[in-house]
Write a protein that binds this DNA or RNA. Structure first.
Length: 137
DNA sequence: AGGCACCAACGTCACGATGT
DNA sequence: ACATCGTGACGTTGGTGCCT
């Protein structure tokens, strides 16, 4: 089991845009360690679908600059472009999931911290109330 | 052992956002 | 206008625990 992608020594800073439109939030992930099961290594376990009759995902039929080739070369080019796009997207999806996972972990950390703070403040308030009550007596 | 439900991780597609 | 990126949605796969 190895960690796919670039190794991240120590902590990580996660920056996320908020949906509510109040800019971005930046979190500190202490010693974040994302365990990614990458038993497959570079080779995806999924079968590579050959492009069928239609061209999915907005593939543009365009000749490479310079010279036009035979139909065979053209279709090879299209196939090659598609494979490249799929590979890029595969990596992007992995990265996106990793980022999301870290973000969730970060939120959970914040929840824990805030819960502690809340507890402390409640105790402090209670102590102050007690103090005040004894004073007024 | 085998069937089943559940979960995490994955690849792919579609689509909006952003850059050139 | 086009290319590229980021991400939600969906289906697939492999692992695991539970029940019969």
């Amino acid at each position: 089991m190895t960690n796919s992608g670039t190794p991240q020594p120590g902590a990580t800073i996660v920056q996320y845009a908020t949906q509510s439109g109040d800019g971005t939030q930046q979190f500190f992930v202490p010693g974040s360690q994302v365990v990614v099961q990458a038993a497959t290594g570079d080779m995806p376990t999924y079968q590579i679908r050959t492009p069928t009759s239609s061209l999915p995902q907005g593939v543009v039929m365009a000749a490479s600059p310079g010279s036009l080739h035979s139909p065979q070369q053209l279709s090879d080019e299209v196939t090659r472009k598609r494979e490249h796009r799929l590979m890029k997207n595969r990596e992007a999806a992995r990265e996106c999931r990793k980022k999301k996972k870290e973000y969730v972990k970060c939120l959970e950390n914040r929840v824990a911290v805030l819960e502690n703070q809340n507890k402390t403040l409640i105790e402090e308030l209670k102590a102050l109330k007690d103090l005040y009550c004894h004073k007024t007596e």
